[in-house]
Design a protein around this nucleic acid. Structure first.
Length: 447
RNA sequence: CGGGCUAUAGCGCAGUUUGGUAGCGCGUUCGUCUGGGGGACGAAAGGUCGUGGGUUCAAAUCCCGCUAGCCCGACCA
């Protein structure tokens, strides 16, 4: 993309309404525009990142054996009356009437809808286990939306639902989700810690939240420092293998890690030596639940077991806040100049700065690098505007592209361009060919 | 939903106390000079002062209502 042809409405100053860093940077870098309280338009660059994150979430879900689908945003109130949550959910649920005065609602979550789909089509234990998921817009009419996309009213969420024949199998699904989430966060460049959690309005017996450490987080968390050393890396995971999944689950959940909701000082002191205890702020980026037969009994989602007896299925639900992740990633990865995108989610893999637009040789080198990247299928942002150098650098730093190629007449005379890492700020001079090769090698390793 | 605050040009703000021709910085447009970390000079465009009513010869300014937004708290992916 040539910057002169793109739509990237940057702000030089911080908008007054934005208080936290990710919100400011998202507004300043032209990723989002607030449309009303807690509701945002996703401008081209924000949309690009959102789709990248969504794509990674899809890949990891499918890898874990979960099946993608799509349910509507508007749901009939009938199903919610059946589960009893139409009344329970309260003011957070946006209720709508259609022209026939039928009660509709903008879905805050999908347990009822998915259970209805399940009971209509699945009757036998032979069809289990089954995990369905979708990534869809949700609406929760928050009392106080804030922090930009971190606590919007409309938000984009992956939510998945598992159906299993018994508790043992359902807990395997639970473990599978935990692992697939850990993998997802790692690919997004985030350190997310699973913490034992309350179950809230979803209900149920088991729940873990995933928290990313950040000063601006809404939750206070307490954990054993050793958990920070855990990593899945390129470990081979067989999601069908119950024992292996259980082992990984144990590895990640046995060290003490709780949010302020479930924290208990006595256990903390008992389980974790003082010098290993960490207290911090964190952002919740996902949650998994096992709630047994809560919905299947209320809504009659039964299957025949091997003896021909109807039994309610065991279920769980699992969510990742996809739009919130943008905020969380920025909170975890920025400096005073702007965003620093992890390679896997960056809107553009590489940025080209032309230091002297209009200089024939410099223009030619830029165009040729740009064309090569485009031919390789890379998203490359070429700043071909007439801005001065300082302004172009500031823009690239603000929007956070991880790798930058700087082309100026001085270097071009010597046959070199400059490759700069956004993260370290370090630059090296290379020929254009080697510069391209270096960057493509980095991205080949990154994924 | 309780408490606090704000609303004036695309963004950031002054002007409101004490009513009297709507201002500044950044950005935008045009021109010239520039050209390796948010350049300089010159010119220009851009505002029903959130909204409805009231007081007044006169309202951004005073009074009343409404709306929107932000912050703190209680709730949440």
């Amino acid at each position: 993309m040539r910057l002169s042809r793109y739509f990237l409405p940057l702000l030089k100053e911080n908008p007054a309404e934005a208080q936290i860093i990710s919100h400011r940077l998202m507004l300043r870098s032209g990723m989002i525009k607030q449309s009303s309280s807690g509701i945002y338009s996703w401008l081209p660059m924000g949309f690009k990142v959102l789709k990248k994150i969504e794509n990674i979430v899809h890949q990891e879900q499918k890898l874990a054996g979960h099946i993608p689908m799509l349910m509507p945003t508007l749901q009939s109130a009938e199903l919610w009356k059946e589960s009893g949550r139409y009344e329970d959910y309260g003011e957070e649920m946006l209720r709508i009437k259609d022209r026939h005065s039928r009660d509709l609602l903008y879905g805050p979550t999908n347990e009822e809808l998915i259970t209805d789909i399940f009971r209509s089509h699945v009757n036998s234990y032979r069809d289990l286990p089954l995990t369905l998921y979708h990534i869809q817009w949700k609406f929760r009419d928050e009392r106080r939306p804030r922090f930009g996309v971190m606590r919007g009213r409309e938000f984009y969420m992956k939510d998945g639902y598992n159906f299993d024949v018994d508790k043992d199998n359902a807990l395997h699904s639970y473990n599978r989700h935990l692992i697939s989430y850990l993998r997802t966060y790692e690919r997004l460049g985030l350190k997310a810690i699973p913490m034992r959690a309350d179950t809230g309005p979803i209900g149920g017996d088991y729940s873990h939240e995933f928290l990313v450490l950040a000063e601006t987080g809404e939750s206070e968390v307490f954990f054993d420092k050793s958990i920070l050393n855990l990593s899945l890396g390129d470990r081979q995971v067989d999601f069908e293998n119950k024992d292996q999944c259980q082992e990984i689950f144990n590895e990640w959940t046995s060290p003490y890690a709780r949010t302020d909701e479930t924290h208990d000082n006595a256990s903390f002191d008992k389980m974790v030596p003082k010098d290993q205890q960490i207290t911090s702020r964190a952002i919740e980026v996902g949650q998994i639940f096992y709630f047994g037969t809560k919905y299947s009994e209320a809504m009659g989602a039964n299957v025949n077991n091997s003896e021909g007896v109807k039994i309610p299925v065991h279920m769980g639900s699992h969510g990742i806040g996809v739009s919130r992740l943008l905020g969380a990633i920025i909170e975890a990865s920025h400096d005073d100049k702007g965003i620093i995108w992890p390679e896997n989610v960056t809107p553009f893999q590489v940025g080209i700065i032309n230091l002297k637009q209009g200089d024939e040789e410099t223009d030619n080198v830029c165009s040729s690098i740009y064309k090569t990247f485009s031919d390789f299928g890379y998203d490359c942002l070429y700043d071909d505007t007439n801005e001065r150098a300082g302004s172009k650098f500031a823009t690239m730093d603000l929007i956070g592209i991880p790798w930058r190629i700087t082309v100026g007449p001085r270097g071009v005379k010597n046959g070199v361009v400059e490759v700069t890492s956004r993260k370290s700020g370090e630059s090296i001079e290379l020929s254009p060919e080697l510069a391209i090769r270096k960057i493509t090698e980095i991205y080949e390793q990154a994924d």
